[in-house]
Amino acid sequence: MILSLSKDNIQVQREQDVVLLRNRVKEVAVKIKMGLLNQTKLITAASELLRNMLRYGNGGTCLVEIVSRGRDNGVRLTFADKGPGIADIPQAMRDGFSTGRSLGLGLPGAKRLVNEFDIKSKVGEGTTVMILKWANG
């Protein structure tokens, strides 16, 4: 069972907020003694999902949690927007697929960088992406 030890909900509306949130994620990662490589992976994945939220989802919120399971501690981030949603999730998850003429590596790349990844989306209602990185994962 995964327990949530601390919760912090952050609004993301502008590009400047990306830096703010990245620092916040770094803070909690350091707090649970996550190594530098895992920190970098987590922050990079978070950065991808944040940018998607700003670019495609009209901004949204990010829930930052410290979680624990047995002896392991980790950071769980939940990005939620009320944007247009994604009609075809497998397509969006494909390397190189982009409707924004960018690299199309954000979603599939983020998934490769973390331990757990979950995406839910409903057209017209919004998108929620959850990622989890264990300190020693």
Binding site: L36, L37, Q39, T40, K41, T44, E48, D95, L103, L105, P108, G109, R112, L113
Partner: peptide, 13 residues
């Protein structure tokens, strides 16, 4: 830096 190099590879860039 090494951790950035590894992360970039995982991203698929």
């Amino acid at each position: 830096r090494p951790e950035i190099a590894q992360t970039v590879v995982h991203l698929g860039i």
